[in-house]
């Protein structure tokens, strides 16, 4: 698989002097197109910070992030916005649907931003919602949906515009086991179907054990990058998860 994302010596620090917090230190890794990776680590280990950097929501303090031939870390605000709009899908931990919009409108939003015609948008939204089994909840507002339904809708919104990269931050954290499995299976299935790169941050063993590739973060450092069950690979060295 060809590398989609490359991180070289990426660090992210917040504050300065005595209040300085090193959220990420010297991260180097490659992510290939179509790869599905679990980002593992305890709370505060820097998982969300890494996802924010990969999704162009934040900029690294040091190092470079490259996507294809473009340097993500050198993007202007406008370029970062365009990148998020076209190439990234986000699945957040909880309750990340916009309360003002119905389920259909929430899912439709990335297509609106992509400038797609209303007819095409509705067609694609119908397909995805049907695929997710949410047809009966089409016009429901987020407040009327269950946790599992909301997360399925979030998955639909993250994937509907066919991005090349999907970043999921603890997507099953507040779901019961059954819903969590359903959401995860859906996310991975669709990602596989669309051949897009999926990075899921989690500390839930039920989630990360189902992934072949893992990235272990601790205290802002990438301590382990491994194929499942093969510990100790690539500690602190540039390498490709995809091997």
């Amino acid at each position: 698989m060809s590398p989609l994302l490359r991180l070289e010596g990426v660090s992210r620090w917040f504050g300065s002097g005595r209040t300085e917090v090193r959220a990420l230190t010297d991260i180097t890794l490659d992510l290939a197109l179509g790869e599905q990776v679990a980002l593992i680590g305890p709370s505060g280990s820097g998982k969300t910070t890494l996802l924010n950097l990969l999704g162009a929501l934040d900029r690294p303090t040091a190092g470079q992030i490259t996507i294809g031939q473009q340097r993500l870390s050198a993007f202007s605000e406008r370029q970062a916005c365009e990148f998020r709009r076209r190439q990234v899908g986000f699945v957040f931990q909880d309750n990340a649907l916009l309360p003002e919009l119905t389920l259909q409108e929430n899912v439709e939003l990335p297509l609106v931003l992509a400038g797609m015609s209303r007819r095409e948008r509705l067609k694609r939204v119908c397909e995805v919602i049907e695929q997710l089994g949410l047809v009966a909840r089409y016009q429901a507002y987020p407040a009327e949906l269950s946790g599992g339904e909301k997360q399925r809708a979030s998955v639909a919104r993250a994937l509907i515009h066919r991005p090349s990269l999907v970043l999921a931050d603890e997507p099953t954290a507040n779901l019961d086991a059954q819903s969590a499995q359903a959401v995860l299976a859906l996310l991975r299935g669709l990602a596989h179907q669309q051949q897009l790169t999926l990075l899921v941050a989690t500390h839930d063993p039920r989630v990360y054990t189902s992934f072949e590739h893992h990235l272990h973060l601790d205290d802002g450092r990438l301590i382990l990058s491994e194929p499942s069950g093969v510990p100790g690979l690539g500690r602190g060295l540039p390498h490709s998860v995809s091997g």
């Binding site: 709009r85 076209r86 931003l113």
Partner: peptide, 13 residues
């Protein structure tokens, strides 16, 4: 939080 979601999706300022 809503504005955060919007911007993460790619909504311009």
């Amino acid at each position: 939080r809503s504005y955060g979601i919007l911007k993460a999706i790619g909504v311009r300022p």
